[in-house]
Amino acid sequence: MIIRKEGSLLPQNPPDTLASKPLSTPKISFPRRPAGTLYRGREGMWSWVMHRITGVAIYFFLLVHILDTSLVRLSPESYNAVISSYKTPIMGLGEIALVAAIGLHALNGLRIILIDFWSVGTKHQRLMFYIVIGLWIVLLAGFVPRQLMHIFGGAA
């Protein structure tokens, strides 16, 4: 819109407002949750959570395991008495849980080292997570049947 004012032509409004106004304000949609990052929400976070849980569990087993093994210094009888509790069916299943925890912690630990030191480690961290899970299943597929044979198989 141009009006005549004191003999010269002057635009009444700044040029960026000359275009027709939008009928309504465009809506900006915010994501309901923060987007996933290497350490939030997806494989990266869950591998971190599992690494902590398995790490603490293995640590407390290690404390007990050093103490029970130290009984070999006391007497053969006391060591044999305590170690026999590791041979019961419940503890045999506990050993499966222990090996599962150690396997996950070890494989994911190697994945962490590759993320830190391998030039394309961060790029492939998600793929490496699934490789960890795959190798872990292979490890347990080898160990669990063998352990079940040992604890429920009868023959010593």
């Binding site: 070999v72 053969p76 060591y79 044999n80 170690i83 590791y86 041979k87 045999g92 050993e95 063998r146 352990q147 040992h150 604890i151 023959a155 010593a156």
Partner: peptide, 10 residues
Amino acid sequence: GAGVKAIDFA
């Protein structure tokens, strides 16, 4: 071997 059942003082 016999796994955990083989573990004793000896």
